Simulated assay, not measured.
Amino acid sequence: MQDNLSSSIVVENAQKGVSRIIFSNSPSNSMPIDLLQELVMTIENLGEDENVQVIILQSGGERTFCSGANFEQLLQIKDEKSGEIFFNGFAKVINACRKSPKIIIGRVQGKSVGGGVGLAAATDYCFATQFASIKLSELNIGIIPAVIEPAVERKIGLSAFSKLTFNPNDFFSAEWAKENGLFMEVFEDIKSMDEAVENLANRLTTYNPEALTTLKRVLWKNTDNWDELLAERAEISGRLVLSEFTKRTLGRK
C-alpha cells in the first residue's frame, strides 16, 4: 500500500514552545523545487518566532521519509543554470537548518535516499525507526552527492560517507546509521519513536532559551562558509547532470 499524500507543508503547534513541520509529496515524499523553497521559508519563519524553542522536522505518511529530489524535475534540466537552481534547493534547506537559532529534531519513519539523507543530517538530533534505512544513489545516474556531503560527513565522518557513496545500489540499515552518528536513537515502531521525540522536545522547552541558541552555534562550529560552499556544490551537480553519461542513464529510466 502506498502513502496517499498531497504535496504540502503543514506547521502544527505540537505543544508550548514546540512547532512541527510536516512535508508531504505523494507517493514517496520526493522534493520538487517549490516544496524545498517553501520548506526554507517555513524554517526561517519559525526561527524568528519568539514563541518557538524547538522545531520537529518530519514527513507525512508511515513509509518513506524522503526519496530525495524530484525525478521528473531532474529530467527537465537542460542547461547548467537550471541545474544549479535545482540542486540549490536542498542546499538552501540545509543552510536554513544550520542557521536557525532553534533546535531542530528529526523524525525519520522510513527510508531516505539522496537529499533525504541530507535532510536527516541537517537536524540537530535525529530519531528513526528500524525501517529508516538510507542510500546515496547519485553515482547510479552519473552525479555525486556534492550538496549534501558536508552535512552528511559532518555527522558520520568521511569513511562512512565514502562507503555510502561508493555503494549506490545498497540501502544501509537504520542501525548502521545510528552506529555511525546519523541517528541518535532507533525504535521498533513509529509510536515509540514519537513518544521519544515528544519527550525530548518537551524537556528542551524547560531549558534556558539563550543556552539552547548558544549550544546550536557551538554544534555548528566551522560551518560559516556553507552558504558559499553549498552553492559551489550545486554548480558542480548542475554541470554533472548534463554529462553524456547522465543523459544516457536517465534516458533508460
Rank of each mutant, 00 (worst) to 15 (best):
M1A: 10
M1L: 07
D3V: 00
L5C: 04
S7Y: 13
I9P: 03
V10K: 07
V11A: 01
V11R: 01
E12A: 05
N13M: 02
A14N: 07
V18P: 00
R20D: 05
R20W: 02
I21L: 01
I22H: 00
F23K: 03
P27D: 09
S28M: 11
N29A: 01
N29D: 01
P32M: 15
P32A: 14
N51W: 01
Q53H: 06
V54L: 04
I55N: 05
I55E: 04
L57Y: 04
Q58E: 14
G60H: 03
E62A: 08
R63H: 09
C66T: 01
F71S: 11
E72D: 15
Q73M: 13
Q73N: 15
L75S: 11
E84P: 00
F87M: 09
F87C: 06
F87W: 12
N88K: 13
F90Q: 12
N95V: 14
R98E: 10
K99F: 12
P101M: 01
I105K: 04
G106R: 01
Q109Y: 03
S112A: 15
V113K: 08
A121E: 06
A121W: 06
T123D: 06
D124A: 07
Q130P: 07
F131H: 13
S133K: 12
I134M: 12
L136H: 04
S137I: 00
E138M: 11
N140T: 12
I143W: 00
I143V: 14
I144E: 14
P145M: 08
P145H: 10
A151H: 10
K155P: 07
I156R: 09
S159N: 15
A160R: 12
F161I: 12
K163M: 14
L164R: 04
N167F: 00
N169C: 03
A174P: 10
W176L: 06
W176K: 06
G181R: 07
L182S: 08
F183V: 07
V186C: 15
E188C: 12
M193K: 05
D194L: 08
V197M: 08
E198N: 14
N202H: 08
L204M: 09
L204Q: 06
Y207G: 05
L212R: 03
L212D: 05
T213N: 05
L215T: 06
R217H: 13
L219H: 05
K221C: 14
K221P: 07
D224F: 11
W226P: 09
W226Q: 13
W226E: 15
D227Q: 11
D227R: 06
E228S: 10
L229T: 12
L229F: 02
L230R: 10
A231H: 12
A231E: 14
E232R: 00
R233T: 03
I236G: 01
S237C: 09
R239A: 00
T246E: 06
G251M: 04
